[in-house]
Computed example of a mutant assay.
Amino acid sequence: MNDYRGRFAPTPSGPLHFGSLVAALGSYLDARQAGGRWDVRIEDIDPPRCPEGASDTILRQLEAFGLHWDGPVRYQQTRGEAYAAALERLAKAGLAYPCSCSRKQWRDYPIYPGWCRNGPCKPEAPLAWRLRSDLGLRPVVWHDRLYGRQCLDPADLGDVVLKRKDALWAYQLAVVVDDADQAISDVVRGFDLLDNTPWQRQLQAALGLPEPRYLHLPLVIGDDGQKLSKQNLARPLPEDERVRPLLHQAIASLDQAPDPALATAPVEDQLAAAIANWTPSRMTAGSTSKAPDWPDA
């Protein structure tokens, strides 16, 4: 393998759906065509949202679709010490601060107003930790492999939470620390996460961490026109013979024009052809695809 290293990092709040499959598939194809490594990381930093057995279900679903990963699966619940060390560095540099404010208090503002930047308004209350988005790298400029040049100011997005009031770690800090620790060179994920990139690049710069390349994939939408997600009760993926036509449709959702003759071929054959023909430039920035239906078992 070369120095390419990709990853798929689902939150185990439920089983994978078709949109999850498209995201996993895009990152898998990109890594495999590059001759690189593809890791799976379970982002289980929010236990109340992660029902028992969901992680195992996700891993079984990936295997059913032929998406086999390299090396051991990483679980973020085991990574608290690394996140604490990163937060301590940010706090010492004046880039993170404790915050007592609740969402209800600033609900009339488009972003958090930064009321606790000079000290928590209520030091006796439970405290979260936020990133000083007005300091550090600004604006954030990067090249997305599909969407091209991006330029966003993190301060326009607000001071994102790094550690919650209930002492659970937040996504932005955990993903940055783990991407660096796992030497992730390429982040391939859905377009819905593109606007998270400025905070992540700001954290990477503040912590002296490498900056991966980014490729944000077109989204899959449901019948209601909304992004397919577990929150809107997207249908779980099957793990039986129905995976073959669904994998073919997932490849098509990435605008890769799979051979119709492979629509019911074994997943190994479909993936081999998709890897050989993977061409990200076929995708159209801003496009979406509809989630397919499939018969009940």
Rank of each mutant, 00 (worst) to 15 (best):
residue 31 A to L: 13
residue 31 A to R: 13
residue 31 A to M: 15
residue 31 A to H: 12
residue 31 A to P: 12
residue 32 R to L: 04
residue 32 R to P: 01
residue 32 R to G: 02
residue 32 R to F: 02
residue 33 Q to L: 13
residue 33 Q to C: 13
residue 33 Q to Y: 06
residue 33 Q to W: 12
residue 34 A to C: 14
residue 34 A to Y: 13
residue 34 A to K: 15
residue 34 A to N: 12
residue 35 G to A: 10
residue 35 G to I: 13
residue 35 G to N: 09
residue 35 G to S: 12
residue 35 G to C: 07
residue 35 G to D: 08
residue 35 G to W: 11
residue 35 G to T: 08
residue 36 G to E: 06
residue 36 G to C: 08
residue 36 G to H: 13
residue 36 G to M: 08
residue 36 G to D: 10
residue 37 R to I: 14
residue 37 R to A: 15
residue 37 R to C: 14
residue 37 R to M: 11
residue 37 R to L: 12
residue 38 W to T: 04
residue 38 W to L: 01
residue 38 W to S: 07
residue 38 W to G: 03
residue 38 W to H: 08
residue 38 W to F: 11
residue 39 D to G: 13
residue 39 D to Y: 12
residue 39 D to R: 15
residue 39 D to N: 15
residue 39 D to M: 11
residue 39 D to P: 08
residue 39 D to I: 12
residue 40 V to Y: 04
residue 40 V to E: 10
residue 40 V to G: 05
residue 41 R to W: 15
residue 41 R to G: 14
residue 41 R to K: 15
residue 41 R to H: 14
residue 42 I to D: 07
residue 42 I to P: 10
residue 42 I to E: 13
residue 43 E to V: 05
residue 43 E to S: 05
residue 43 E to H: 06
residue 43 E to R: 05
residue 43 E to D: 14
residue 43 E to K: 13
residue 43 E to F: 07
residue 44 D to F: 05
residue 44 D to V: 02
residue 45 I to F: 12
residue 45 I to L: 15
residue 45 I to T: 14
residue 45 I to P: 14
residue 45 I to N: 07
residue 45 I to W: 05
residue 45 I to C: 06
residue 45 I to H: 11
residue 45 I to Q: 10
residue 46 D to Y: 05
residue 46 D to G: 12
residue 47 P to R: 09
residue 47 P to W: 10
residue 47 P to Y: 12
residue 47 P to F: 08
residue 47 P to D: 08
residue 48 P to F: 02
residue 48 P to H: 05
residue 48 P to A: 10
residue 48 P to S: 08
residue 48 P to Y: 07
residue 49 R to K: 06
residue 49 R to S: 01
residue 49 R to W: 04
residue 49 R to N: 03
residue 49 R to Q: 05
residue 50 C to N: 07
residue 50 C to E: 11
residue 50 C to D: 07
residue 50 C to P: 00
residue 50 C to A: 07
residue 50 C to K: 00
residue 51 P to Y: 01
residue 51 P to E: 01
residue 51 P to W: 00
residue 51 P to R: 06
residue 51 P to V: 02
residue 51 P to D: 02
residue 52 E to C: 08
residue 52 E to Y: 03
residue 52 E to L: 08
residue 52 E to W: 04
residue 53 G to V: 07
residue 53 G to H: 05
residue 53 G to A: 08
residue 54 A to C: 14
residue 54 A to R: 05
residue 54 A to D: 11
residue 55 S to L: 07
residue 55 S to R: 03
residue 55 S to I: 02
residue 55 S to F: 04
residue 56 D to E: 10
residue 56 D to T: 02
residue 56 D to P: 00
residue 56 D to Q: 07
residue 56 D to Y: 00
residue 57 T to A: 03
residue 57 T to Y: 00
residue 57 T to P: 00
residue 57 T to M: 00
residue 57 T to I: 01
residue 58 I to V: 03
residue 58 I to M: 10
residue 58 I to E: 00
residue 58 I to L: 10
residue 59 L to A: 03
residue 59 L to P: 02
residue 59 L to H: 03
residue 59 L to E: 00
residue 59 L to S: 01
residue 59 L to I: 05
residue 59 L to Q: 03
residue 59 L to W: 02
residue 60 R to N: 07
residue 60 R to F: 04
residue 61 Q to F: 06
residue 61 Q to R: 13
